[in-house]
Design a protein around this nucleic acid. Structure first.
Lengths: 217, 217
DNA sequence: GTCTATACTACGATAGAC
DNA sequence: GTCTATCGTAGTATAGAC
């Protein structure tokens, strides 16, 4: 093992620093000098670990998405009924967003900022797009399953996916604004529990099919 | 009249161009040269209309927010019951986001990107914060009213505000991703109508109090 | 693998002619 | 009100010493 670890510590540290900075200020707002020096390196040493700025950025994004995918995959694969499975996915998603500060913002940026870093599609963006597509696909299928089985109302699953992203990713990305709105830190254990409860209650009432009703109603 | 219009056209054009560019690439991702030349001016002429980059940015943001505020104020002030009033606000909000492309992204950025353009709080950011605070305050009070009158479930109004922002602002800010997910343009009249219907249905089932139940249940 | 030094470009902003 | 010219800084990236 370890046949692929050039210097081990520095690369990880660059990814950590890059994750924090890119999350806060976005791709264009971050200078490589700041990244390198925050990691305890000189500016030029960064280029020994990453070919350029975009490569660093997508390496950071891919690590965040990989973490999320690893965490959520088993929850999607559980044998529970769709509604219970969705509850588990929501809890797991919120947990990962909270455990790794910055990942919510980084993910939100990846979703709404069109990757217009370069004119032509970048090959290094492909792995990240693959993971996002897989995650969204699983969520969409879970919702579709619930609708097919009659446990959920017949909603538009893509629109519900968007609503769920907004309710989770956006919420935990909304730093100072969200904190001012709630009156206490977004990631405090109390507000995290509250967020989970509020969202799951909204879905329980709003997504679950409202029991069996006679068609004449 | 007209005592305050120096050149009229250029300033408006700069705001238009700035709105499009800042929405797409964020504050740091936009160069003043591109803004000026896209407006048909030289780079230096821009400084005749705006003192600097931050002033241009907040002028753009303020215009967007002002537009939104003017549109939504009467909807918030309507005499309808809270649930119907909320429906109207949602329709109006989505309409403004759709009519002015870029405003969703610009607003989303303003909400989740902490204004870390400068170390100290900028005086030119204050008007925008005032409008946002007013809008959010009205929405929060509308929800609180509905809860107090028993028309809504006893939800956390700040959390519901966040959910609504995510369901509207984020959705229409999610350009290529959202379009790929839905399979057709976000702002097509069909998808806009669908978005309104899906969201209002979710709220109708998930936010409205589920009829009167005996307390012993 | 990290450093100093450097090339080249673009940035925000200012000065002054017209 | 717009222009050309310029300043100072910081950006990404490369070359080469250690």
């Amino acid at each position: 093992m370890d046949h692929e670890t050039p210097s081990a510590g520095s690369r990880e540290k660059l990814l950590d620093v890059g994750e924090a900075l890119f999350a806060r200020r976005g791709f264009a707002g971050v200078g490589l000098r700041e990244v390198a020096e925050s990691a305890g390196l000189g500016k030029s040493s960064l280029f020994h670990h990453f070919k350029g700025k975009v490569q660093l950025y997508f390496a950071v994004l891919e690590r965040v998405l990989q973490r999320m995918d690893t965490r959520l995959k088993p929850l999607f694969a559980s044998a529970l009924a769709p509604a219970a499975r969705l509850d588990g996915v929501i809890d797991g998603l919120i947990d990962t967003l909270v455990e790794h500060p910055g990942s919510a913002r980084l993910l939100l940026r990846a979703l709404f900022e069109d990757d217009d870093f370069a004119p032509e599609p970048l090959p290094e963006a492909e792995p990240t797009e693959r993971i996002i597509e897989a995650l969204i696909g699983r969520l969409d299928r879970l919702l579709g399953e619930g609708v097919a089985q009659g446990e959920f109302r017949p909603v538009s699953t893509p629109h519900m996916v968007q609503t769920l992203i907004g309710a989770t990713v956006y919420h935990f990305a909304s730093g100072d604004f969200g904190e001012a709105l709630l009156g206490s830190p977004l990631c405090s254990s109390e507000q995290v529990r509250r967020r989970k409860d509020e969202l799951k209650a909204l879905l329980h009432h709003g997504l679950t099919a409202p029991a069996v009703v006679p068609s004449g109603g």
